[in-house]
Design a protein around this nucleic acid. Structure first.
Length: 305
DNA sequence: CACTTGACCTGTCCGC
DNA sequence: TGCGGACAGGTCAAGT
């Protein structure tokens, strides 16, 4: 057993952490077999899989928004979206960490009842796609068809890359002027990879009430938010993302970000900046955590001309 | 077109 | 103890 990647709510930092783990373990491995119990989880037909997956070697592992792209050496890729409860778990019989490694106890425990797809490699190592709620999916697709997918057509800039400049951010937000700022940054066409955790965290850093309409957020606060999104995602990445209680990553470390979260799931506790009790409300249909003192509702005044 | 709500699933937790 | 219902949240389809 040499790898265990999990996150309970994969957003950009979690998916990127998984990408790095997959990259270090899958590249150069050749697919030898696949088992799938659920066409929704892996809808490809046997013929396509037989022709383009079995025998193919992993060449690259990339990420766009919350989607993983496992590139093969034959012009095809495996795309994976983990949605809420998806996990990608790599298991090899070779022990890389010696006895006593926390992941050792997982030997023999997979597949379990959440396992939807099992990929087997030539050296008998395996990649398990577990997904309790079956919202996630993996599919095999020709590389040239990837950009044609609707999602890739409309997805916004990567927040940790250069194309996420403030002008672009403002431009995309202007399309969502009459919705809440939280709904706007959850919109993957505005910025890629932000989910419920980092939306709340970013808005707290930027001191913006999550329900504020986009058109009522001042330019100065938008500027702060643009930086806050990058700051919260980057910080979480350094902790290996936000991982649920019983899982560790390939090095045996947990995704520790939630221990350092500012507001997410901290309702009833103190705001790290001012000590006020953090509240939980519903915004954009999501559980939303914020500090009532640091993040006040504002309304932009009309300019007096 | 902009915006909101419901559906997709299953496990867990809470109140009765 | 069992049971119903709310809740968890990413994305898309369908509704206003």
């Amino acid at each position: 057993m040499s790898g265990w990647y999990n996150s309970s709510m994969p957003e950009l930092p979690e998916v990127e952490t998984i990408r790095r783990g997959l990259e270090s373990h899958l590249i150069g491995r050749k697919f030898a077999g696949i088992k799938s119990d659920n066409p929704k989880s892996f809808p490809n037909d046997e013929k396509l899989v037989g022709e383009y997956l079995i025998g193919a070697t992993v060449q690259s592992v990339n990420r766009r928004a919350k989607i993983l792209i496992i590139g093969l050496d034959n012009g095809y890729s495996l795309l994976a979206h983990l949605k809420m409860t998806g996990q990608l778990v790599f298991v090899s019989l070779k022990k890389r960490f010696g006895g006593g490694h926390p992941t050792d106890s997982l030997i023999g425990k997979l597949p379990d009842r959440s396992t939807r797809v099992t990929f087997e490699f030539g050296d008998a190592s395996k990649l398990y796609f577990n997904d309790q709620r079956k919202f996630g999916w993996i599919r095999l697709i020709k590389n040239q068809d990837i950009p044609k997918l609707e999602f890739f057509q409309k997805v916004g800039p990567e927040p940790l890359e250069a194309d996420f400049d403030f002008t672009t951010f403002k431009k995309h937000l202007s399309r969502r002027a009459n919705t809440s700022i939280k709904a706007a940054i959850l919109d993957q066409s505005v910025v890629a990879g932000v989910g419920n955790i980092y939306a709340d965290e970013s808005l707290h850093i930027a001191r913006i009430h999550p329900a504020t309409l986009v058109k009522d957020v001042s330019a100065m606060k938008l500027k702060r938010l643009h930086e806050a999104i990058q700051q919260s995602l980057t910080l979480s990445l350094t902790y290996g993302g936000s991982t649920d209680r019983n899982y560790v990553d390939v090095e045996g470390k947990r995704g520790n970000y939630l221990k350092f979260a500012r507001v997410f799931r901290r309702q009833g506790l103190s705001c790290p900046d001012c000590g006020t009790i953090i509240k939980k409300i519903k915004v954009a249909g999501r559980g939303t955590h914020y500090c009532p003192r640091c993040q006040r509702q504002t309304k932009k005044r009309d300019k007096i001309t």
